[in-house]
Design a protein around this nucleic acid. Structure first.
Length: 215
DNA sequence: GACCAGGCACATC
DNA sequence: GATGTGCATGGT
């Protein structure tokens, strides 16, 4: 039974690592900007970039929308890929202001599937970033898949290697209750596990999930 | 110095 | 649909 297996994994991780209290960020807007900045980037570097934005007092939709893209790029330099990420932040803001009056509150009434489609239409927002925004900024019961999720599930034979993003997302969403708090904690726990035990070059001898394979 | 980090778009086959 | 490449800083 897949749902029991997924629940067992969650219980093991929660007991081992405890609550993760994601997403780190004071406001939904900060969560969204962080979701774009953390693409393929260590979170510690993103924190430096966000600190720069706060220090410059531009971490609001209005201020960032008006800020010159080159200036934005310099502020977010520590996050890496700063030119392309500055464009991506701008693309999101263009969409927000042109289609939704620049107000995040206007997004609350949009259904998750529809909002996901709109976010995916923004150049620079892909599936993981869109799902992170839906779950962590808007509390929608959407499961976020990332490189760690696929690697962990693949190595523990929960999915076959080569499974794509949507297959893995569908697996979790179909076999767990649609609970945003559960999905929040589950994804964060998988990332924690991945950082400690599931790097590309495996060091999985002491992985907490190993004892679940009691064949 | 090598490796890695909470991806994505785009070109190409 | 699968695969390869550019994008870039900073920690271990």
């Amino acid at each position: 039974m897949l749902s029991k297996q997924l629940k067992d994994i969650y219980d093991v991780l929660y007991k081992r690592f405890g609550p993760q209290e994601w997403w780190p960020g004071d406001t939904p807007f900060e969560v969204i900007i962080g979701a774009i900045l953390t693409q393929n980037t260590n979170w510690a570097n993103v924190e430096k970039a966000i600190a720069n934005l706060k220090k410059a007092r531009v971490l609001t939709p209005e201020k960032l929308y008006r800020l010159d893209t080159g200036k934005l790029a310099q502020l977010i330099r520590p996050a890496g890929y700063y030119n392309i990420k500055a464009s991506r932040v701008k693309n999101f803001l263009d969409w927000l202001f042109i289609n939704h009056a620049g107000k995040l509150a206007n997004l609350q009434k949009i259904h998750s599937d529809s909002l996901r489609g709109e976010l995916l239409s923004v150049n620079g927002i892909g599936r993981e970033t869109a799902d992170s925004i839906l779950l962590y900024a808007f509390k929608r019961p959407v499961f976020v898949v990332d490189a760690y999720t696929i690697r962990i599930c693949s190595r523990h034979h929960i999915i076959d290697s080569g499974a794509n993003y949507d297959q893995v997302k569908n697996l979790f969403e179909s076999n767990l209750p649609a609970d945003s708090q559960l999905f929040n904690e589950y994804h964060a726990l998988l990332v924690h596990l991945g950082k400690d035990f599931c790097k590309p070059k495996p060091r999985c001898a002491d992985c907490p999930l190993n004892h679940l394979h009691h064949i």
